[in-house]
Amino acid sequence: MNDETGHDHHHDHDHDHTEPPPDPALRVKALESLLIEKGLVDPAALDVFIDTYEHRVGPRNGARVVAKAWVDREYRDWLMRDATAAIASLDFVGRQGEHMSVVENTASVHNLVVCTLCSCYPWPVLGLPPAWYKSAPYRARAVADPRGVLAEFGTLLDDDVEVRVWDSTAEMRYLVLPRRPAGTEGMNEDELAGLVTRNSMIGVEHALAPGQGT
């Protein structure tokens, strides 16, 4: 059953197929779907387990990337120019972290990333996506009414702020560089990283204000 553990990097420019995940992931999906059909596993119970551990997968070090970009102008410029290399320089491994692009929030632009429903989410950087992020309704609404979606997360933007919605593809995965919160001038990189949430890096929220962090 373990005939292939490697993974080809096809970066096809036609989008009429989805790249299958690596062999062990397919084995897990096979087991899971068969056990659910047999009534031996409850999908809702599985979701609860996965939600419990969503922050425990991969290096989840996107917050470090963001914090470094906030304090180190040269790194920030490199990140904007060649995110894949700049992120890799912080010792990230994992295929979904490759081919990254960083989009920067500014006073006039707010970025929101919608994920496709496959494996294109950059989990090495962000950890596992929350269940809602992978839902078809979220994706559709984020494209049709990004301000409405943002408002539901309590993220209110001035009318003159442009909202850009980015659609991850097999070739490119996006990371939002949130704005550095006010009042953080004296904070070091570690402290700043504590303000950078996964949700801020997919653009549904701002980074936390000082005192809200973990």
């Binding site: 899971e32 991969g58 596992l128």
Partner: peptide, 26 residues
Amino acid sequence: DDGPVFAEPWQAQAFALALSLYETGT
């Protein structure tokens, strides 16, 4: 210190499946 860690998503799914089967007495 905070519990299990997973290198890849499928590992968390495999972990969840085993716990789920254990909890339902399989």
